[in-house]
């Protein structure tokens, strides 16, 4: 479209050639390296940081002289916006790089399939199997609660909800999205403290905490997907004499199923890395706890934190577990995108 390549305005002033930024960028980087040589010697971060500032200045000044003030401003804006984007990529890239670099040291099939039984001190063996199982349990419990609850609430909001109750729920679901994870942890902790007593620890508590965080995310994404289903489909179904509930199940949900799956997977990816609520509620264990309703259980994020806290040889396990966690999260995200790309009904777009 024409937005990305704006129409060339009537030319009253001279313009810089299209390739002008490239030599300026190279020159700025070289100059930045030169400046750094005068100081303590160049670092990659320093060259890019100073080079970026120089590029902005040189480009704007040149443009001001050749093209005039309006174009200079435009170029400055382009530079700033582009650098904002590149700047945001730095943490992402460096984080992935560090996690992969430090994670692969201990990451192996054995790491994924052994637990920490009999591992102590500076032993380098051991793995995160128990934590993976724990994460599956806790996230599973959260999903069992949050997914049906979220989907039905979304159905209520889209298909049935009228009046103040529906508006109230919409607002409060949105507000619930912002509940701090540690508050959800405190809630689950006090809930079981009051109902069951102080000695009780289990994956269930963590699952409840995560469900509180997960439900609003599911509601929001499912709601959006249901609203995308064209009304014509519903009306066609009613016209055939199909009752409303069957229309919802067979027409609306079926049309939106790809989007719902995507939303649910992203919701899972969002809560699977939650650390703080699990730190408060389920603690840590060294062996696999197959009982979701009794006993402390290890989870991947808490495992990462505890292993980091122990330091020494355990720090490598922390990084390997962090890598495991990132791989799981990325896979969930990737699969979610693929589902939404390949299984969406064509009419929904």
């Amino acid at each position: 479209m024409s937005v990305t390549t704006p129409p060339v305005p009537v030319r009253t002033t001279r313009r810089l050639p299209r390739w002008a930024p490239i030599p300026v960028l190279v020159a700025s980087l070289l100059l930045a390296a030169g400046i750094q040589f005068l100081g303590d010697g160049p670092t990659i971060a320093g060259v890019f940081f100073i080079g970026a500032i120089l590029f902005g200045i040189i480009m704007t000044v040149t443009s001001r002289v050749v093209e005039g003030e309006r174009y200079a401003k435009d170029r400055l804006a382009t530079t700033l916006v582009t650098f904002a984007f590149l700047l945001a990529l730095i943490p992402l890239v460096s984080l992935l790089w560090i996690v992969i670099r430090d994670g692969v040291k201990r990451f192996s099939w054995e790491f994924l399939t052994t637990d920490m039984t009999g591992i102590y001190g500076q032993m380098v063996e051991g793995g995160a199997f128990h934590a993976i199982i724990g994460t599956v349990y806790v996230t599973g419990i959260a999903s069992i609660i949050a997914i049906p609850l979220g989907i039905f609430t979304a159905i209520y909001l889209v298909e049935y909800g009228r009046g103040p109750l529906s508006r109230g729920i919409t607002v409060l679901v949105d507000v619930m999205t912002g509940i701090p994870s540690i508050v959800a942890g405190l809630f689950a902790f006090t809930l079981f403290l009051v109902i069951v007593g102080p000695a009780y620890k289990s994956a269930l508590i963590g699952g409840i905490a995560l469900a509180v965080l997960m439900t609003p995310v599911v509601v929001r994404s499912v709601e959006e997907m249901l609203r995308l289903v064209p009304n014509e489909l519903r009306e066609a179904s009613y016209a055939l004499g199909v009752p409303k509930w069957l229309t919802i199940v067979k027409v609306v949900l079926r049309t939106a199923i790809a989007g719902i799956t995507t939303g649910v997977m992203i919701a899972i990816a969002r809560v699977i890395g939650e650390t703080a609520p699990l730190l408060l509620t389920v603690g840590i264990a060294t062996a696999v706890n197959w009982d979701a309703f009794d006993g402390r259980i290890a989870t991947l994020p808490v495992f990462v934190y505890r292993q980091y806290a122990q330091g020494g040889a355990s720090a490598d396990r922390a990084w390997a577990a962090a890598l495991t966690l990132i791989i799981i999260v990325m896979l969930l995200n990737l699969v979610a995108r693929l589902v939404s790309r390949y299984f969406s009904p064509k009419g929904a777009r």
């Binding site: 609430t153 049935y160 439900t215």
Partner: peptide
């Protein structure tokens, strides 16, 4: 499908209200 409708609407509404209950419980 009147019964089905009523049950389905009941479940959906109850879910919505339950979210409010959770928030209040927190």
């Amino acid at each position: 499908g009147r019964l089905g409708n009523r049950v389905f609407q009941g479940i959906s509404t109850a879910s919505g209200i339950f979210i409010l209950v959770i928030l209040a419980a927190v």
